[in-house]
């Protein structure tokens, strides 16, 4: 079972993501903001996949990405997807330079599409790893 950490500050959206990923058979953990997510990763670095919202209180998604990619040693290579909104293209560009694996635009896809996308990604990722 794949372990996924979802960081999203909006309670309902977090709830929806949690439900749909559980439904899809993921071992799902949620964090209510970036700091919470980073703490969880540091305490227990076991996740196969990180899903980060960009705009969150205390710490935003990009800073979380920066932090984990710079964890020392060893560098955390956990795949990271960003859930973004329209109008954040430059942030996504920056994120790819830091070490992003992919992104979805919240408004343009249904929650199920996100799950499908992550499924596909992890399948490819696993292939590449072998």
């Amino acid at each position: 079972m794949k372990r996924i950490l979802i960081a999203e500050d909006d309670f309902y959206i977090r709830d929806i993501y949690a439900r749909i990923f559980i439904n899809a058979g993921y071992d799902t953990t949620t964090a209510f903001d970036g700091k919470d997510a980073l703490d969880k990763i540091r305490i227990n670095p076991i996740y196969d996949m990180l899903l980060l919202d960009i705009l969150m209180p205390r710490m935003n998604g990009i800073d979380v990405l920066k932090a984990i990619r710079n964890l020392n040693p060893p560098k955390d290579q956990t795949p990271v997807y960003i859930i973004s909104n329209l109008g954040q293209e430059s942030i996504i560009e920056e994120a790819f330079q830091i070490g992003l694996d992919g992104y979805v635009i919240k408004a343009q896809v249904t929650p199920q599409r996100i799950v499908d996308e992550i499924n596909l990604f992890l399948k490819k990722h696993a292939k590449n790893a072998i």
């Binding site: 309902y12 249904t110 929650p111």
Partner: peptide, 14 residues
């Protein structure tokens, strides 16, 4: 509007 709408769409799909 988008954030609550996203929630509505999500729940509707669920």
């Amino acid at each position: 509007l988008r954030t609550p709408l996203t929630a509505i769409r999500g729940y509707a799909q669920l």
